[in-house]
């Protein structure tokens, strides 16, 4: 078991391990973190890893990077149960689950093309967040996003 684990997930000295990502969402997590192709540090991604609690999960490890609050909020929208492990000098310095914010601002584009937040007006998008399942309700036009939230991330 441990040999298999080591093969899949090599320990890192400093950085972040995002664990328990909803299976299939790892690529979207990379997109949220702006990692598309050329990137200077080591990034490891594992998809559909067997998990006792989830059946299957994805894992993303990024060396030499700790995440910003906005990035964590975005990850929570697409994978509410994801856990963040901050690694410093090979030790887990901090570990917590991402938390869904009550309001998200300037993170998601409204699906309604006729919404005021999709015009040249000086307003940014703003959504109320509901849990179980995640629903985003635009505070301007009241349209609700329930599916494929990753596609609408700004």
């Amino acid at each position: 078991m441990s040999a298999e684990k080591e093969l899949r997930v090599r320990p890192i000295r400093n950085g972040t391990v995002i664990d328990r990502i909803l299976a299939g969402q790892a690529m979207n997590v990379l997109k949220i973190l702006g990692i598309k192709g050329a990137y200077s540090d080591v990034v490891t991604m594992a998809m559909n890893v067997p998990s006792k609690a989830l059946g299957q999960k994805d894992i993303v490890k990024i060396e030499n990077r700790e995440l910003e609050e906005k990035e964590l909020d975005k990850i929570s929208l697409i994978s509410t149960g994801a856990t963040i492990n901050i690694i410093r000098d090979f030790e887990v310095a901090d570990k917590y689950q991402v938390e869904l914010p009550e309001i998200v601002e300037s993170m998601v584009k409204c699906i309604n093309p006729n919404c005021i937040s999709n015009t040249k007006e000086p307003v940014t998008s703003k959504f109320e967040v509901k849990k179980d399942p995640v629903q985003l309700r635009c505070i301007y036009c009241e349209n609700i996003i329930t599916e494929n939230i990753a596609e609408h991330l700004l």
Partner: peptide
């Protein structure tokens, strides 16, 4: 009266 949904709420801001 404005054609965009949410325009009144934005105006209030």
């Amino acid at each position: 009266r404005h054609p965009s949904e949410g325009s009144a709420l934005m105006a209030a801001e």
